[in-house]
Design a binder for these strands. Structure first.
Lengths: 329, 329
DNA sequence: TTGTATGCGTTATCAG
DNA sequence: CTGATAACGCATACAA
């Protein structure tokens, strides 16, 4: 029975080393063990080719050193960046990541939370647009960009500040008539504040502005209609645009070019997110950069903090401006 | 003892329902159970708010329904796409993904394999550039783009065919003098065959060509030097370029534009990978598209197949050509 | 410091 | 078809 073909366990190691099971456990976990015993155990581990099996510990202690991340996908560069930095932040602390793609599907999100619980993960980080997500209260839970309640910490960029900054930047770059364009998600979340910051600044500065917020279902062509409405003898009445995301900004710029409107000569454009070509090359557009790495760090340190209760319920991290060729610097 | 504050277990449910533990397990796992017993159990589950705990099963059976994916990062759009489709393919089969970023670091890869084993994952999918990776033989292991041995299935695009196709396409588009540019990784892997296919086709067609393969350490400026060497009175001697990746193609195109060489008027450029702006908008360059979704599907079905031994050891999936504005169609 | 013994939650085997 | 019970691999309280 000591020589079956299944993988050796701590008990096998103990027998081989002539020590007790508990001693093997202590060696493996780096606790204090007498020198002689330690080497005896280590040699036995080598001889047997023993590999630690964490399922025993999980059953015993309930800990997995694993965090579930729920995010729509990894195709969108901003999400991909977030996944990257969250995983690195976890790994730094010797934690693992269970990755779940919601695909913007409410049911999947619920199933993932269920699954995460069944798999005994130590916490969940979620970026969700679900308007009515029920968050379990017996598992550390942190959200990105969406505030649920004071008991669920939310980490986000300073979206208001970013919008405010964009307006100021456009003014500083000489714009005299600006607009904000975006696609609004069904739920009001932190990114919704990009508009608020922008509007606040415009009002403060007396800078004329317009806002177009499309609903999710409305087609992109609504933006084209809007822009065409604001063209007189080939000239766009706006000389500055702030767009909700870099992705949309890129599309808008294409539309403008098709309309023979030059960027940045005729109209300057600022996006939001800070996406770079291929993740690490030049910025795609002039943009307000989200501090992705800091967001990731904060998510991880928050979800792993022992006392979630005395953690701020909304943490906004500072954004920066980055020129990307669609403004006249 | 039946009313402590810890989460209810199957035993608690059994007691509540007045049935045996085994019956609860059978209900939870959807096995045949008499109608009366089934509803009794289901009601008890509701009353107690019971949640299945998979760590018990893992300890007992060794299965986790989890696959580890080892990949350099998720910043690069191609990797991000791969992660996405692999995760979706896994989820379709009710499997989970443990995501590990190697950051091109050999030691990390080894640690991840170790970790994966300790966490009892059911298999590993790895995209690695490690020249001397020792692959454990007691765990299903599949690689992407890199062939190790006949006992480790390798999934890749038809890189040779892609290079071949690129050469033919350039010829068809009127090119008379072409070049292949790439950055070579230290190891020869499947993507190395892009050059071979390109060269083969050029030779077959009698199309004059040159090849520049930079080592990892060489700076990008070597490409600029090469291009400048091939300029006479403001004209590039090449009228067609095939570049190892879309990412590099994008950089090369910028260099060309700085040199006042127009793309695609003066020189047509084809990249490799099939990257789109923001993951889902227009292609970044004209390109050979890797069938990422099929690659992902194949990786997953292979790593989960019960009999890895009678699976082909190298599977190459067909690529396609996609025009992206850097060729004259 | 080391040994011993128990239990974590589940599955699976075996009787009934 | 259902009940009882023994593992699975490990951590830990307790005894030595």
């Amino acid at each position: 029975m000591s020589k079956d073909n299944s993988a050796p366990t701590m008990a096998d190691v103990a027998r081989e080393a002539g020590v007790a099971l508990g001693t093997v456990s202590r060696v493996v976990n780096g606790q204090q063990v007498g020198e002689v015993f330690r080497t005896r155990v280590e040699e036995a581990i080598q001889r047997l080719g023993y590999h630690y099996n964490s399922s025993g510990r999980t059953l015993r202690t309930g800990a997995t050193d694993t965090i579930a991340l729920i995010i729509p996908n990894t195709i969108s560069p901003y999400f991909a960046l977030l996944v990257h930095h969250i995983n690195m932040a976890l790994e730094k602390r010797d934690y693992r990541m269970l990755l779940c793609f919601s695909q913007y599907d409410t049911n999947r999100e619920l199933e993932f939370i269920q699954m995460a619980r069944q798999n005994q993960v130590d916490g969940v980080i979620a970026l969700t647009y679900n308007p009515s997500l029920t968050i379990p209260d017996n598992i550390p839970f942190v959200t990105i960009d969406r505030f649920f309640s004071t008991s669920v910490p939310c980490i986000a960029s300073d979206n208001f500040g970013g919008g405010y900054m964009a307006a100021h930047k456009l003014k500083e770059l000489g714009c005299t008539n600006v607009a904000f364009l975006r696609v609004a998600s069904r739920v009001t979340n932190e990114p919704s504040k990009r508009k608020d910051g922008f509007v606040s600044a415009c009002v403060e500065m007396g800078l004329p502005f317009e806002v177009l917020a499309l609903e999710d279902e409305q087609p992109y062509t609504e933006f084209e209609r809007f822009l065409q409405h604001h063209v007189e003898n080939g000239r766009l009445s706006f000389d500055g645009l702030f767009i909700g995301t870099d992705s949309l900004a890129w599309q808008i710029i294409h539309t403008l070019r098709r309309m023979q409107i030059r960027v940045p000569e005729d109209v300057q454009v600022i996006g939001f997110d800070g996406i770079r070509m291929f993740g690490d090359q030049e910025p795609v557009v002039s943009t307000i950069v989200q501090p992705v790495q800091e967001i990731a760090e904060t998510c991880v340190s928050t979800v792993l903090s022992k006392h979630l209760s005395n953690v701020p319920s909304l943490i906004c991290l500072p954004v920066t401006y980055l020129s990307g060729g669609t403004t006249r610097e």
